[in-house]
Nucleic acid binder design. Structure first.
Lengths: 192, 192
DNA sequence: CCCCAAAACTAACACTTGTTTGTTTCAAAT
DNA sequence: ATTTGAAACAAACAAGTGTTAGTTTTGGGG
């Protein structure tokens, strides 16, 4: 059990992640959130500036984790195939380690208000470009078959980002195993 | 121009599809919807019983289209590979022909109220089983490599259901071309 | 013990939510 | 020209929205 005793702030955030995922950001009220935490709604504002602030913290924290996971991959791996496999593994691991939060990241980000929304989109685009870059270089070196780059990147991301749904329904598959299997399926499709 | 002159009912539905997709079901109010249609909110209730009724019609209509598209595939194709390719094509075509509605189908269905929600889940599960069945038989016949069935089905669905996002950003790719490319990528990964 | 700040509370504000009621408009059929 | 039913409307309801103001509780440091 990593959960010793949560601070109220941590408790609010964790509960928000759960509720936002279960019922959607717009459908969850501050009073409902507060009740689940065990406090009154106004008390939340001692810890977060606004509802949007809460969503912002959740989304941007996951974004940072994706970038961090990728950084290690980019430094340690050389060939396009190995980089891709490692990137997929890192990405899936972040999702696996933050199931609720990453579900919010993927499904509720559009409720961010400006300027957070614009910054979020920018970050996400940067991250996608990193993946696309690996694939592009792999194609040019002949490791991967030449195909529509945008479509391929999209397909891969879609598959990866559904990992969350997989966890819910699946007979216990480990994150590593899921990452391995998805990587296997997709890389075989990429290979020239 | 297929749009000769829409009935008010059709107008409401089409506008609802657009708004629900753009801003999410919970975030769209009846007054906002009405305004976009050019009427007052209470007038909507001359055409739909409730907000939920609107969502129900959108979601279940798309569901019916998926089933219809699959039916033809199942009758006309024989080998697992051909069936799979045709099923993917049919699925993507339904999305391509109903971009807004299918986006709502995939992202807003959880806002359905009971008993619609339960029925929707059941339908969706049935549809998934049809795909899984093709893959399963393909594996047993040796056309496809034996892998975790649930994971494979999930990965494929995830890729297919992101088609909508692809349309928005992509340099004009035809539905057929998208279906072809995705099918190519995924089937190669499946092949034994 | 007292103080002070962090964090909880109650009450309220201004506004929006989906929906209902009762009435009026309007176009097609008699 | 009159009837009729569909579809529009304005007004309102009860409940819920995020948030703020002002106050009380709480728990650790001097």
């Amino acid at each position: 059990m990593a959960t010793a005793t949560l601070t109220t702030r941590q408790n609010i955030r964790q509960t928000a992640q759960k509720l936002f995922r279960e019922r959607g950001y717009a459908a969850v009220g501050m009073r409902e959130l507060a009740k689940e935490v065990g406090i009154e709604a106004p008390s939340i504002y001692n810890h977060y500036k606004s509802k949007d602030d809460l969503l912002r913290e959740i989304c941007f924290d996951i974004a940072a984790q994706f970038f961090k996971a990728f950084e290690e991959v980019d430094l340690n791996e050389k060939s396009a195939t190995k980089k891709m496999r490692a990137a997929i593994k890192g990405h899936v691991s972040v999702i696996a380690d933050n199931m609720e939060a990453s579900a919010v990241f993927f499904q509720e980000w559009m409720f961010l208000e400006e300027p957070n929304l614009a910054q979020f989109k920018k970050l996400r685009h940067e991250y996608e470009l990193k993946f696309r870059d690996i694939i592009d270089k792999g194609m040019k070196k002949g490791d991967f078959k030449t195909m529509n780059l945008k479509l391929v990147t999209f397909t891969i991301f879609s598959a990866l980002n559904a990992t969350y749904d997989l966890y819910k329904t699946s007979e216990k598959l480990s994150p590593d195993q899921i990452a391995e299997d998805i990587a296997g399926l997709l890389l075989k499709g990429l290979k020239s």
